[in-house]
Amino acid sequence: MSTTETTRVVITESGRMGRVAYARIAPNEDLVQGVEKMCLAEGFRNAFVRGGLGSLVDASLGTRDGGYQQVSGPAVEVVSIAGEVRSGADGVPVASLAGIVADTDGNVYGGPFLAGWNPVCMTFEVTLEEWIPDGEEPA
């Protein structure tokens, strides 16, 4: 991926785990932005996903060519998910989430969840654990 970022790339980052938060994200909210808003609500700058499960109306998963694969529901169940949230200098949390989804026949698809394109169907449960890099105190 090309980037014009001018921030210093840190390859290893030491730190510790902080607070743990659980949220239930309501229907029609976007999964990725929902996790980001959860971080705004809880004051988490950086976090790892410790667990997540729930359903989406339809899923949109990014593809290598910059397009996306749409998996039609409802409901598309999220059956595996991993990811993290990082905040830049502006303090805006950005979630990067990837996982496996299952359609209404149980067939599976995988990839990154595109922000704004993965509306929750019934509920989404997510547990985040705050990540506090050395030298940064939590907000």
Binding site: R19, A21, R24, E29
Partner: peptide, 9 residues
């Protein structure tokens, strides 16, 4: 829309 709770650790 987001029902969230946290604990210190």
């Amino acid at each position: 829309r987001i029902q969230s709770m946290h604990y210190q650790s």
